[in-house]
């Protein structure tokens, strides 16, 4: 069953000069137990989408969609507090900025215990305190923190980035969410810890059947740990489908550039030789090019590209490009 099913998600910012559309008609869906990667150039709208799903964007942003279904129920049509309740119960997010999630003035024990909902503690009320403590320790072990005694008594500033990030994950999984959204969970971490964390997210997904939406710049890790993939460019969805088939044969020139720019995917590349890169940079939202937004940077652009391409599909593989890299004749 589809857990999350969003059609034509649009996110706009109110500014003195009018509305700026930062995310434009993006589709996104997740099955139960699926892990989906979300990649794209910096500023392409990944974090905005994540925040729109958990409903934490402030009032300056307008969120609209033709469909915003969670377990078959359209969230945007629910009254606000109903919406908050469903999201709060089922969806957890690990933020790009660690500072957003941990309270610097409270000890870890307190914060972690607070994140555990009552209904997950099985036992009589007079044992609640004890059970909560056991559960907090269990969560720390689960995320790979062995030394729980010392960590529980610490304040966030006394701990390393890596440990803080693990605690954030522990807090996120404390409520046994159906969907876990991780927005660049590892950028601040060293490579050994990074690998550990990705494995942790993957195992959590396998063990508990939790769906994961993983936003990351580390394409190698996305390739290894996700089943499906959505690629954004400049607020629009340019390609989506199974991760393995996209990595093997991307249809969209932007996805192609993204994959080719990573030395790991280019086994024959000699050290110190130039990496594949598109010229120029992502346009600002106030001055978008006409037609295909990749146009000015695209090596395959032709005159047809001044018309905005639609999202086409070939089996389960979606792309929005007039000249997909397979060549139209194979379609």
């Amino acid at each position: 069953m589809l857990l999350l099913d969003i059609k034509n998600l649009t996110i706009e910012l109110k500014t003195p000069d009018g509305l700026i559309r930062a995310v434009d008609r993006v589709n996104l869906s997740l099955r139960e137990g699926e892990t989906r990667g979300l990649v794209g150039e910096s500023g392409s709208g990944k974090s905005l989408i994540a925040k729109a799903i958990v409903g934490v964007l402030n009032k300056r942003w307008l969120v609209s969609a033709d469909r915003f279904n969670w377990c078959g129920q359209d969230l945007l049509r629910l009254p606000y507090d109903q919406q908050r309740k469903v999201i709060g119960r089922d969806i957890a997010m690990i933020y790009q900025e660690p500072s957003r999630s941990l309270d610097p003035t409270a000890a870890i024990l307190e914060q972690l215990e607070e994140a555990i909902p009552d209904h997950l503690l099985e036992g009589p009320w007079w044992k609640r305190g004890y059970l909560r403590r056991r559960k907090a320790i269990g969560l720390l072990h689960k995320v790979g923190v062995r030394d729980h005694q010392a960590v529980l008594q610490s304040y966030p500033y006394q701990l390393s980035e890596g440990v803080c990030q693990k605690i954030m994950i522990a807090m996120a999984i404390a409520k046994a969410p159906k969907l876990l959204i991780a927005d660049e969970p590892t950028t601040a971490l060293e490579s050994t810890t990074q690998a550990q964390l990705f494995r942790l997210l993957a195992s959590f997904n396998q063990l508990k059947g939790t769906s994961v939406l993983l936003i990351s710049h580390e394409l190698e890790s996305i390739a290894r740990y996700t089943q499906s993939l959505s690629v954004l460019y400049c607020g629009q969805l340019v390609e989506a489908g199974e991760t393995a088939s996209i990595i093997k044969q991307p249809y969209h020139p932007y996805t192609n550039a993204l994959i080719k720019s990573v030395p790991e995917f280019q086994p024959n590349l000699q050290p110190k030789t130039p990496l594949y890169a598109l010229p120029g940079s992502i346009p600002v939202l106030q001055h978008l090019p006409i037609g295909c937004r990749l146009g000015p940077r695209c090596p395959n652009a032709r005159k047809e590209c001044v018309k905005t391409p639609t999202l086409d599909r070939l089996q389960n593989h979606y792309y929005s490009c007039h000249f997909p890299l397979i060549g139209k004749k194979d379609l």
């Binding site: 794209g40 150039e41 910096s42 950028t187 710049h217 394409l219 550039a257 993204l258 720019s261 990573v262 130039p274 990496l275 594949y276 890169a277 598109l278 940079s281």
Partner: peptide, 12 residues
């Protein structure tokens, strides 16, 4: 912290 395509540009 750069995205891959930007990182490629800077590396080049």
């Amino acid at each position: 912290a750069l995205d891959p395509s930007l990182r490629a540009q800077i590396v080049n």
